[in-house]
Nucleic acid binder design. Structure first.
Length: 512
RNA sequence: GGCCCGUUCAUCUAUCGGUUAGGAUACCUGGUUUUCAUCCAGGACAGAGGGGUUCGACUCCCCUACGGGCUACCA
């Protein structure tokens, strides 16, 4: 039975890289018909951010990623799922290691540790608490036994450190990277239990994964260097035969320059790094979210899935169930991926294009109603149909094509000064008159009208297009002209045309 | 600095010793749309460098370079 956990730390909003980690975990779990668990790793009280846990759950819910067990659910036989609520469980495991001789008590102050590091650095050695330096520190290995007992009885501040073996290769198999070997001389005697009684990540992670019967640990590459430490812990606890499979995911990198994607990059480069908008509870600073910017969650998920994973057949469009079906851990890449804004747009456009018109209508109706109170509800579907293929975001319908719902508030003067000439007003007036007189206001009928007018005047119909378009929409681009006019209808088209003629006459230089 | 991981077009990537190194986005050109933000066709663009191994290396090994991660009583 496959059991997989996503174990974020509630130190702030979950960023898009974290969402991808959650996604890969989710896909792997569902592909293998396993159980997906949310575990909150809140062992660092100093870094705890209120609201972060709820934000994580809300973000993943928006994406469609759900859990079978977790702190927010009533189900689950391995509760609690918040490490702070499991605090009492960890001490016995750490002490068990001390008893077995794999760990020890340490009483060093911050100053002691500082001095040790400075001393080692000066003698050009790695500044770490290890098999060599531990012998000159204040711990249960250097202190007399009765002294240790005394300190323990007095409840002095103490940490428990892992006693690393000297010069031993620790190897483990990573599903994505293959065999990885690290020698213990490169590692240090990590603190397992902090002086406040809380476990560190390393202890809590291993103990909880064991207790919760986790079978696969899929996490970011930043954990690769400490994986051997975790392997050692499984070994010393006597759980090595139940050790989960490890898979370390590549990181998401900044689109420009170097380094891993960080909170600041998003708004600097014009795309969100967070799924949902987040307001920092202390600084009140707001970071934008994919949802609020207007992305479809399915598009975000699809894009994220492809950042570091691909199928052999080059397919790029996947629904969530299709992702589950196609996902294979072994096809996850080893190298970091840069986020590509243009590709994100493309994905979103693909998804908006697939949306049923009725759904788009339901979603934009409240906003259209508010922004353009006089819009025509009966023609909302037609308006959407006119723009659907071009929209990248659902909000484009009302933000980029306000003329579908309202007479233009302004006209693109650049285009007007280029395309307009002395004859234009006369032509527009004549066309207006002609339009008022026809019954059939279909696209073809209007086109015929314009063509006939052009022929009569020995002109190309083309030259009337831009003036008409600008008059009707205020803009140079948009849906096909005659289809647009048909959508607006005879009354509205004529109304807009005469309004534009009057308005522009007063605003244009007299020589036009 | 030390250790670990990585390195195919600008970007995401396919390739698992023999390919004209394929696709997608972006870009450029042409065509539709006499608008464009869609659509269609075409184009340019890549195996970091150097050594091996091999009949043959993008693919395997080594070195270098570059990139990233870790190096806390943070996760």
């Amino acid at each position: 039975m496959v059991r997989v956990r996503f174990a974020p730390s509630p130190t702030g909003p979950l960023h898009i890289g974290g969402v991808r980690t959650a996604l890969y975990n989710y896909l792997f779990t569902k592909k293998n018909k396993g159980t997906f668990i949310l575990r909150i790793e809140d062992t660092d009280q100093k870094r705890y951010v209120p609201g972060a846990e709820q934000y994580i759950i809300d973000s993943l819910t928006w994406c469609g990623i759900t859990f079978d067990e977790g702190p927010h659910l009533s189900s689950g036989e391995y509760a609690p799922y918040r490490q702070s609520e499991r605090k009492g469980m960890y001490k016995q495991y750490a002490e068990d290691l001390v008893k077995k001789g794999f760990a020890y008590y340490a009483y060093d102050t911050d100053e002691d540790l500082d001095n040790m590091r400075k001393r080692l650095e000066m003698s050009k050695m790695l500044p770490k608490y290890d098999a060599v330096s531990r012998s000159s520190m204040v711990n249960s290995l250097t202190l007399p036994a009765d002294e240790v007992q005394k300190r323990l009885a007095a409840n002095e501040d103490v940490v428990i450190r892992l006693k690393l073996p000297r010069n031993e290769d620790v190897r483990f198999f990573d599903e994505i990277r293959g065999w990885v070997v690290i020698n213990t001389t490169q590692m240090d005697d990590k603190v397992l239990l902090k002086s406040d009684g809380m476990p560190t990540y390393h202890l809590a992670n291993v103990v909880d994964d064991y207790l919760m019967k986790i079978t696969h640990v899929i996490r970011g590459e930043e954990w690769l260097p400490s994986a051997p430490l975790h392997v050692l812990l499984y070994r010393y606890f006597g759980w090595e035969d139940q050790m989960p499979v490890f898979a370390h995911l590549p990181l998401l990198l900044k689109p420009d320059g170097n380094g891993k994607l960080s909170k600041r990059d998003g708004d600097r480069l014009g795309f969100p790094v967070f799924p949902l908008q987040w307001q920092d509870p202390i600084t009140h600073e707001i970071s934008s979210g994919y949802k609020e910017v207007g992305y479809e969650s399915a598009a975000v998920l699809n894009m994220l899935a492809l950042l570091g994973w691909h199928t052999a057949d080059n397919r790029e469009l996947f629904s969530l169930p299709e992702l589950i079906d196609a996902f294979e851990l072994s096809r996850v890449n080893k190298s970091g991926a840069k986020f590509d804004l243009q590709k994100a747009y493309w994905f979103n456009q693909q998804y908006v294009n697939k949306l049923p018109i009725e759904e788009i209508a339901d979603r934009i109706r409240p906003i259209v109603k508010e922004k353009y109170p006089k819009y025509n509800e009966h023609k909302l579907n037609d308006a959407i149909a006119l723009m659907k293929e071009k929209a990248v975001f659902v909000k484009d319908f009302f933000e980029k094509a306000p003329y579908l719902f309202h007479i233009p508030a302004a006209y693109d003067m650049d285009v007007i000064t280029k395309k307009w000439n002395a004859q234009t007003f006369e032509d527009l007036n004549n066309l207006l008159l002609a339009m008022q007189s026809i019954e059939d206001f279909s696209a073809i009928s209007i086109e015929n009208l314009v063509t006939n007018y052009a022929q009569k005047n020995n002109q190309k119909p083309t030259q009337y297009f831009q003036p008409l378009r600008i008059s009707l929409t205020g803009e140079a681009g948009g849906p096909p002209l005659f289809e647009l006019m048909n959508y607006l209808g005879k009354a509205e088209s004529c109304n807009r045309l005469s309004f534009a003629i009057n308005k522009l006459k007063n605003h244009l230089p007299s020589e036009l």
